[in-house]
């Protein structure tokens, strides 16, 4: 085992380029997961029984099958049906859709955790549905949702390397390309691991701070 700093310097530009793509994917698919998750949550709490059932079957089906297979499905099967997606788009849709099923549970739990008394009091005070949501329910439901949603954003960041399997040139994709080209695996993969560890630890610390801050405000 011989670590070569020259090789590190040589692959650094490619890895930085890959890191940018990774961050970009994380941001875009986070937005997809947060928005779609809310839609899923609303569908799962819908007063219409059939909507509720379809939403539960769809989200459970997505949750219980591997992300990699879903990505292959988007990337290899959809073109046969005439829908051609770029690797980046397929990756963002796949990752966002997969994590939307997780975030939908956070939304649902957050809304269900608001005590029934709050709904009843809002009705007793003769508030409209809109007022009840914006003035009473959401201000209480949203703060406890933030830490788990943040954790899912970190989880998505850590899942992005899987996108290299559908030829997205993210951090892992660039690292594997460099490794295969030079036939040196030690430096690229170690650097990727170190990079992920660094970003995860920092973001976990930020979420912890946020959590403490929210707890202080609630107390």
């Amino acid at each position: 085992m011989d670590w070569s700093w020259d090789f590190v310097a040589q692959i650094m530009p490619a890895l930085t380029q890959g890191l940018l793509v990774t961050v970009e994917i994380t941001l875009v698919s986070s937005v997809v997961a947060l928005v779609l998750g809310l839609l899923f949550a609303l569908a799962k709490m819908s007063p219409v029984g059939s909507v509720r059932r379809v939403a539960i079957i769809a989200t459970e089906g997505i949750r219980r099958t591997p992300l990699l297979v879903q990505l292959y499905f988007l990337f290899y099967v959809l073109p046969d049906l005439g829908i051609l997606l770029s690797p980046f788009t397929a990756g963002v849709i796949g990752l966002g859709l997969h994590y939307a099923t997780y975030t939908s549970e956070v939304y649902r739990a957050g809304i269900n955790n608001v005590p029934v008394g709050q709904w009843e009091a809002a009705r007793a005070c003769n508030l409209t549905t809109r007022q009840t949501w914006t003035e009473i329910i959401l201000p209480q439901a949203i703060p406890p949702m933030i830490p788990p949603l943040g954790n899912y954003v970190i989880a998505m960041f850590k899942e992005t390397p899987i996108l290299s399997a559908i030829t997205v040139m993210d951090l892992m994709g660039e690292a594997l390309a460099q490794a295969n080209f030079n036939y040196r695996y030690l430096e690229p993969i170690t650097l990727v691991a170190a990079g992920f560890l660094l970003v995860s630890l920092i973001s976990a610390a930020i979420i912890k701070l946020l959590e403490n801050h929210l707890n202080l405000r609630a107390a």
């Binding site: 850590k158 892992m172 490794a179 993969i189 560890l197 995860s200 976990a204």
Partner: peptide, 19 residues
């Protein structure tokens, strides 16, 4: 928990033989 499962798998398969 901080590094991705994907990276760990590649490290186990490609980097461990080097040590």
């Amino acid at each position: 928990r901080g590094t991705s499962i994907f990276v760990q798998l590649f490290a186990a398969y490609f980097v461990l033989p080097l040590v």
